[in-house]
Amino acid sequence: MKTVLSIQSHVAYGYVGNRAAVFPLQRLGCDVIAVNTVQFSNHTGYGSWKGDVFTPAHVEQVLEGVGERGALDSCDAVLSGYMGDAAMGTVILSAVARVKTARPDALYCCDPVMGDVGRGFFVRPGIPEFMRDHAVPAADVVTPNQFELEYLTGCPVTSLAEALAATAALRSRGPKLVMVTSLTRAEAPEGRIEMLVDGDEGAFLVGTPRLPLDPPPNGAGDAVAALFLAHYLKTRSAAAALEGAAAAINAVFQETRRAGTRELQLIAAQDLMAAPSVRFPVERVR
């Protein structure tokens, strides 16, 4: 069994951040040490919420207590997402360094949560720069969406060729694997949304149906990053992890559409998330 330290946001209602990542990781057989960077009533996509962003000192204390139990020394991976504050990044990278000191083969998977196509940036000032200049270079795996990939590389992404150029540029800065959690390109078949992974074994593309979800659910990127990491820890194959993550998130989206809700239906879709009945072909593109 693999152990993942997941440092992300937390909401009481709904599924984003750790609420969108922890259960998928657990359902796919990982033990999870969840450390929350914020506690909100609900995700910010609703326009209003209650709660607090935790201070870096608070999160550092929680991690210190976990470390005193010896738990950080057994982690196979660290997953980070929404930070809440740029100063939180230093605490997260310190935790990554501690885990890697005990386990040099442990992975750091950075989900560089900053913004999205159509919304722009939705994080506090300083976070995008920290992601670009510090978190991404320290990561083994990064899981940006299309907007975040463009920001991190300064490259436009409107075609597969541009996407591959951008993932190659990002990999040149340190990460071994770049997994783009959502890709829309002009030459793609209509009604399809794609994910792309680029690593040492090659680059691979997978497409799933673009479902009419209105409003689109928040937290999908958080869930996809967790699903990809869980499959990658199990298989050590980027292509296999991409296939598994695509099938699982499609099952979640299908259940979310049936429920008619903007919240990801992770619990209702849990069996299909773990053993999808529908899979999608993965195409080597480099």
Rank of each mutant, 00 (worst) to 15 (best):
P144G: 12
L266E: 02
I92G: 03
E162D: 09
V32I: 14
G126W: 08
N18C: 14
H58A: 13
I267G: 00
E150K: 12
A246V: 14
G84Q: 04
L152W: 06
G221K: 03
R210C: 12
V224K: 05
A77P: 13
I193H: 00
R119S: 13
P125W: 07
V99K: 06
G199R: 09
P125R: 09
D198S: 15
S172I: 12
N42T: 10
D73W: 09
E243A: 15
D140W: 03
M131I: 13
S277K: 03
I127P: 15
H134P: 01
V123F: 04
L164P: 10
S94K: 11
Q39L: 14
G244V: 08
R124E: 14
E201R: 03
G29F: 12
S80T: 13
V16Q: 03
D198R: 13
P217S: 06
Y13E: 11
K234M: 06
T261C: 09
M179K: 04
V285E: 00
D52C: 08
L79A: 07
M131R: 01
L164I: 08
Q270I: 00
A166V: 04
A241P: 07
A251V: 06
A168C: 03
A168D: 15
I249E: 01
F147S: 06
L227F: 04
H43R: 06
Y13A: 10
L72Q: 03
A102H: 15
T181P: 02
A106V: 10
Q8A: 05
P216G: 01
L211A: 11
E190P: 13
T208V: 12
A87R: 15
L264V: 04
S41D: 14
A269S: 11
F121I: 03
A220I: 00
